[in-house]
Design a protein around this nucleic acid. Structure first.
Length: 425
RNA sequence: GGUCCCGUCGUCUAGUGGCCUAGGAUAUCGGGCUCUCAUCCCGGCGACAGGGGUUCGAAUCCCCUCGGGACCGCCA
């Protein structure tokens, strides 16, 4: 039975490196039908905050990484103390200046890593280390071993910044008479300058990506492909990842976080998403614009919103892009990106189109097409003569979906209002 | 500095001795489609860090060099 854990320290938000580690643990557990534990490593009293815990939980929940068991390390102090005492008693540890130190024995330790292979560490290079601070609290390298052993974690999957800690931990397992778990050290995620990813590389907070309009399934897909692969496939649903995931298919070299590919992947998942879910997801972004009220949103009509989301999602990479495009559906003053000046002839044509539109009983894609062409024929004009002016006036932009489609979802009332406004100017 | 890990197109990767004049994706450039843009389709550019071996044959195995990263804390 597989049991894995993700063990973040609550000293800040969940960053993309941590999320990737969490995901690989979660995928492994779900693929194997095992157990996934979330364990908050809050033994650093100075820097741990409840706010960080809340943020981590929220980010994990957003990504859909659900856990089967939850612990806080500081809740387990009694267990840690018991174990530390036993090390003192059996001579594996000693007290000095109020702190308890683990005595590193002579010899060497081989880490049998599932990803890195066998890595040998000579104990000459490893100094005695503190397991219990003089203030009575315990340090990471110690509690991680006690907890992993106690919770019967079978596989420790974590970033390879922990690889050189591993021999210390294996020594502790031995001194405690416990069997070490299997280890798999994941390559790190680096910034574009190939150094450890940090805040100076821009956005590293998972929840920040939510704010920037990314879909959780796109993030999950992207993180999975940082290190793991399955042939030539790039786009995976969550279920596919669970089904296909394997540590054997995981590489061992560091990867750079490339937002361009994430943006592309986000678009792929927006195209895969159920349109009505997309509407639900984009809603807060539209409201956040400040131009559309809850009432206006509710009055817009689900069908219109769904149709427009389907129409527009091919043209955007994030929910923010989609939200800004959907603004044109509402009776708001739209920002026109380039000024349209009509000659008298064009005014005449558009006025006639407005007349046609305003009498329409229904305004479907084919209604718009029929009406538009009827009016153009009457005026002896071509679509090309006024298409650009109509598009820019009704949507604010020179580019967008097919004209019939976009006019149809905007609706005759708003379309006519915007066009008449143009003629008057 | 010591120890350890890593090194295929700009980026993510496929590749586990012959299927590789190295495949896919992204980005980028060009073409097609379209009222426009996007999607989509077609095509171009673009990599085995370097040097030695081993072998009939090496991106793949070995050694050295170089480059990058991590750890070396009473942080995790």
């Amino acid at each position: 039975m597989v049991k894995v854990r993700f063990a973040p320290s609550p000293t800040g938000y969940l960053h993309v490196g941590g999320a990737r580690t969490a995901l690989f643990n979660w995928l492994y557990a779900r693929n194997q039908g095992g157990t996934f534990v979330l364990r908050i490593e809050d033994t650093d009293q100075e820097r741990s905050t409840q706010e960080s815990i809340d943020q981590i939980v929220e980010a994990m929940t957003w990504l859909g990484l659900d856990w089967d068991e939850y612990y806080r390390q500081t809740d387990r102090t009694d267990v840690h103390l018991e174990a530390a005492k036993s090390l003192l008693e059996n001579g594996s540890a000693y007290e000095q200046d109020g702190a308890w130190w683990f005595k590193v024995p002579a010899g060497e330790t081989v880490v049998h890593d599932l990803l890195a292979g066998d890595v040998t560490f000579n104990h000459d290079q490893i100094k005695d280390f503190v397991i219990r601070r003089s203030d009575g609290t315990f340090v990471y390298n110690f509690v991680v071993v006690i907890d992993d052993a106690d919770m019967e974690i079978t596989h420790v999957i974590r970033g390879d910044d922990h690889l050189t800690n591993t021999p210390k931990q294996i020594m502790l397992y031995r001194a405690l008479g416990r069997k070490p778990p299997k280890f798999a050290h994941l390559p790190m995620i680096l910034g574009p300058d190939r150094t450890r990813l940090s805040k100076r590389h821009g956005v590293t907070s998972v929840l920040e990506y939510r704010r920037r309009g990314f879909l959780p399934e796109a993030m999950v897909n992207f993180f999975a492909r940082l290190g793991w692969s399955h042939g030539d496939q790039e786009v995976f649903t969550r279920d596919e990842l669970v089904k296909l995931f394997s540590l054997k298919r995981t590489g061992s070299s560091a990867a750079i976080f490339d937002e361009e590919k994430l943006r592309w992947l986000n678009q792929q998942h927006m195209k895969l998403a159920d349109p009505s879910r997309l509407v639900d997801l984009v809603r807060p972004f539209v409201i956040e614009s400040g131009q559309v009220t809850e009432e206006m949103w509710n009055a817009a009509g689900d069908e219109r919103l769904t149709l427009s989301a389907e129409l527009l999602r091919h043209r955007c990479h994030t929910l923010i892009d989609l939200a800004s495009m959907m603004l044109v559906l509402f009776p708001v003053e739209i920002e026109v990106e380039d000024e349209i000046a009509l000659d008298d002839r064009q005014k005449e044509i558009i006025a006639s189109i407005c007349d046609g539109f305003s009498q329409a009983l229904s305004f479907s894609h084919s209604d718009v097409e029929r009406l538009l062409h009827a009016m153009l024929a009457e005026q002896g004009a071509k679509l090309k003569d006024v298409a650009h002016a109509i598009r820019v006036t009704t949507t604010g932009r020179a580019v967008g979906p097919g004209l019939y489609n976009i006019l149809s979802v905007i609706g005759s009332e708003i379309v006519v209002a915007r066009l008449r406004d143009l003629i008057r100017r």
